[in-house]
């Protein structure tokens, strides 16, 4: 049949959705009159139906797991991040403690050198601070990373951090005398100090 080739071309264009109204009508009228072409068209449509029936083709049920398990390891940061998002309260508490401890520890480690809150009239020999005889220190005295020898008098509290109070002679301290040497004590002392400050601030 001579008509066939042209109309088969039209059929394929129709199946691709490429026909305009006019061409579609042309194909329709031809199919109604031509048995052979009608048959051809049915066969094509059936072939497509057969090709499209692939719902039975499914990967194994654990396909997704297999893929996920063979992926390269994700960045640690992301898994931590996800965990933190799931536990906000713990995260907040953890951050608080980290900041707290680091600030206290850094204050502890920071100044390895000797420091005195007041240097007036005091003698510093190597790592020993001496309050000479006849000298009266007014107010509190804090000595860090050094020993303290009191020969005169202190009119207030004395705190010695990371050092010793050398009981050389009959020095005089009117207030409390405190020695902080262990890291825990230092922590305790800072905590006490902070609370004291807070209360002092609120009571003002």
């Amino acid at each position: 049949m001579t008509c066939k080739k042209e109309f088969i071309q039209l059929m394929h264009h129709y199946l691709d959705g490429d026909l305009n109204k006019e061409e579609e009508q042309q194909l329709r009228t031809h199919l109604q009159s031509c048995k052979e072409c009608q048959n051809h068209f049915q066969e094509l449509k059936r072939t497509i139906t057969l090709l499209e029936s692939n719902s039975h083709l499914q990967p194994s049920p654990n396909f997704t797991n297999k893929v996920i398990n063979s992926l390269p390891k994700e960045k640690k940061r992301i898994s931590y991040l996800r965990w933190f998002k799931a536990h906000p309260a713990i995260t907040a508490a953890a951050i608080f403690f980290i900041l707290m401890f680091t600030s206290v520890f850094s204050a502890w480690n920071q100044d390895g050198h000797l420091s005195v809150s007041k240097e007036q009239n005091l003698i510093i020999e190597n790592d020993t601070v001496i309050v000479p005889e006849g000298v009266v220190v007014e107010g509190d005295l804090v000595v860090k990373n050094g020993n303290l020898k009191i020969e005169g008098a202190v009119n207030g509290d004395v705190v010695i951090i990371n050092g010793e109070h050398l009981m050389a002679s009959a020095g005089e301290v009117t207030g409390e005398l405190e020695q902080v040497n262990q890291i825990f004590e230092w922590f305790w002392y800072s905590l006490k100090d902070i609370t004291k400050d807070i209360f002092a601030f609120t009571s003002k």
Binding site: N54, L57, Q58, P59, F63, T64, V67, I68, L71, E74, K75, R77, I78, R82
Partner: peptide, 23 residues
Amino acid sequence: KGDQSAFEEIVAFHQSKVYQICY
């Protein structure tokens, strides 16, 4: 962004079609 668990749904959604094309 590096979130591996988000990939799971992508796989689950596309697995049939990809498998069928390969087959």
